[in-house]
């Protein structure tokens, strides 16, 4: 059964005809063809699909599309400026060497964004808390922590 859903996606109003069973991740990737948000497991344990909904980092693979009505969603595609400049968090991930294979990175960055929007100067422990649901197999997390710290002006 399909239903019309309205929400704000990366600062633009969006209307989607969605099956009530669909997840937000499915709509992003398969309906809207925005593939920046990744699926690493599909059951909420790796964080690769993290997006920010009303300021909160959430696993979009578990998030029912029906819950999205009226909400404000930011995905990795929404961070770059219109003139093509990287968001400071994206730039920090690039400059600090926090990106290897990169599959976890959009989710990591969105978790970091939710944190830094709410708390511009987080402690190291708060940084770790913000990405403890985001798995990365390449980096050993060290440079990811460094990148988030550098945005927070903590270096």
């Amino acid at each position: 059964m399909k239903k019309e859903i309205n929400f704000t996606l990366n600062n633009e109003k969006v209307t989607v005809e969605a099956d009530t069973q669909w997840t937000l991740l499915y709509v992003l990737r398969e309906v809207l063809e925005m593939t920046g948000t990744k699926e690493g497991c599909g059951y909420g344990e790796c964080g690769a699909c993290t997006v920010v909904i009303d300021g909160q980092a959430v696993n979009s693979c578990l998030y029912p599309i029906m819950e999205v009505e009226g909400r404000n969603i930011i995905t990795i595609e929404g961070l770059m400026t219109k003139s093509g400049e990287l968001d400071p968090i994206q730039k920090a991930f690039v400059d600090e060497g926090a990106v290897q294979c990169g599959f976890c990175i959009p989710g990591m960055i969105m978790s970091a964004k939710a944190l830094l929007d709410a708390k511009p100067k987080p402690t190291e422990d708060e940084i770790k808390e913000s990405i403890e649901g985001n798995l990365c197999r390449c980096t050993g997390y060290v440079k990811i922590i460094d990148a988030i710290k550098s945005v927070a002006g903590g270096r």
Binding site: R29, M34, T35, G36, T37, K38, E39, T75, I76, E77, L79, M80, L86, Q90, F93, V94, D95, G97, V99, Q100, C101, G102, F103, I105, P106, I109
Partner: peptide, 22 residues
Amino acid sequence: KRIPKKDAPLKATGEAIYIQDL
């Protein structure tokens, strides 16, 4: 030199196309 990885901007913006995205 500590030069950033060439494909990092592509990956950090979600533009990189993995097999999942193809």
